[in-house]
Nucleic acid binder design. Structure first.
Lengths: 184, 184, 184, 184
DNA sequence: AATGAATGAGATTTCATTCAT
DNA sequence: TATGAATGAAATCTCATTCAT
């Protein structure tokens, strides 16, 4: 997964992977463990996803601190930390999702959609907001603003000019206004 | 650029490109126009970037409508529209920026950094905010939340569940609160 | 011819030749002057050979100085000078004679055989030697020892450790003994 | 090495070599054994050179038969025989030494220089000659006259008109006179 | 389970040559 | 006469995959 995320799927040869795994390169030893290069990618993505239950069950972290500000701060830090753990997977999906949709669209869905949905439902509960679309929009903006920071850094290689504390420090009140400033 | 953005750089063969350009595939006719496959990518990215002055000069759009709400709505729509025009470039950069940094890090910088910087300086002016770091954080969150929507859709292939109008409708008050004055 | 002699026939592209001739490379302008790459080589070799009458007519230089020692010194210097003028041709023949015999064996013959034959007949006349085979052997040794010096330098790139004067200084008495020491 | 010496390096394709080696042509099987076409040439030349200790140790053959005439006859036959064994290498060096000096100048040096130097030192010992330059010139003429015979035949494809026995028969007295004592 | 060796397919690139302009 | 553009053929080299050992 590291190699795929660094060089891209097509540009990573089986021989390179074998060498990195301590097998003799080009000898095909990898095929005793995986059926094909695609199967290796699939298995890698699935292993990564399995570890990811955490982020999907974002709601569990969010259970009643009572204090909304504290709760939001916790959420922000937690989301950023989770994204850091999944940087490799993110890079792989960013590079290959469109060229190998049959292998990866499930992973994208599991990773992205369910996280956004979970967050949206929390938004719905935490605000008075009864409008599902608006809750989804708030979730998209809130999670998206954090996610974008990591994507720019880990996928595009553009080092962020804002440090995490400042980012979180601006994000929390932003979310509070999104949640609290219920429209008329 | 279309082929690169759809299949990835490594997975797009010169023969395919030649065929798409009306040359006979595999005959190397492309080499009368570009020195190498890399040179083709570089030239393509540069052409795309040249067209991009627009987004970089984001500040020009932002010159005093007077009404902050109207201004923000305009900004949001404009940013989304620009990102749609640059979807191909974005996909290419997302997939290749880390594996070909020598070719692309300049492009990422020009595209991302300057846009964020321009927006941050507008944020500094529009809000009373004298703290440059905070202005940068607000810009990162604000632009990032819109950008993420497009990245998820165009790079990861995850269709958004929020339509643009709803997104903009939530973004504008969010930015108003970020810009300091709690919304009316 | 310079390019062929430096890089070899196969490794010299028409485009390179065109560029060196002031035509635009790859445009095929050369084909207004020569029918094919082979025809160019043939024409070049023939032009070089035309200039070569001189060496072939080696006997003309050898007409009666009377003094054998002076005559031999003259011969040696003349042969070395001629070989220097034909270094390019020699390199081309050395590299291509075996792979393009149909084009070049005529040239080799004209250059080598006739020179050796001419010298052999002079040897026959100058010495009392009536044995044609022995005269040919003496010619082969005499000319060969000079020729080898130039071949090693110009074809193999092995700089000679013996300067021309010393070489000639040893060659002249050697030839005198070959010519004079008629066997019993 | 046979193919290179017959057709030239550039004109011998990897596919041809593979076919000649019993591999399927064009499949790149050769690259499991050599890193590149150049590496193959280098390895071939080196293997040939390893066998060549013999000719380099020319002095060993020259150890005191006592009878100079017998000794010289032996030398001549030995040199011609060695050159015949190295005809392939000679052709390759003749064709490629100037276009691939980085690969081959070492080989030329090892082959030519050391042989000539070895012979020169024997000449110095055998004649009374104390002048190193003159000994070198005598060696150059003596070895060169034999070498040239083989180069003309094997490199230029010009069949010699003198048979080996006649050649040696003329060479031996020539060397005896060069070595100083006018022949008996 | 691992490897040396092989291979069909295909990648990028070069090139002699042609041709309309 | 010169050139921009094109192309069939072929070159070097890579690679996913297979297989006997």
């Amino acid at each position: 997964m590291r190699l795929f995320s660094e060089r891209g799927y097509a540009a990573t040869s089986i021989a390179t992977i074998e060498a990195a795994a301590g097998l003799s390169p080009g000898a095909g030893g990898l095929y005793h463990h995986f059926d094909s290069k695609q199967a290796l990618l699939t298995a890698g993505v699935e292993r990564q996803l399995a570890r990811l239950e955490a982020l999907r069950d974002i709601r569990r972290v969010l259970v009643g601190l009572g204090d909304l500000k504290a709760e939001l701060t916790l959420i922000a830090r937690y989301v950023l930390a989770e994204l850091d753990r999944e940087a490799e997977l993110m890079r792989i999906l960013a590079a290959q999702a469109r060229s190998h949709p049959e292998l990866l669209s499930g992973a994208v869905d599991q990773l992205v959609s369910s996280t956004f949905d979970g967050f949206a439902s929390w938004v719905g509960d935490s605000s008075g907001e009864p409008d599902g679309d608006r809750a989804a929009a708030i979730a998209a903006l809130g999670l998206g603003s954090l996610l974008c920071n990591r994507i720019l850094r880990d996928v595009f290689g553009a080092e962020s000019k804002v440090d995490d504390e400042t980012l979180v420090g601006a994000w929390v009140p932003m979310m509070m206004s999104l949640l609290g400033g219920a429209p008329a």
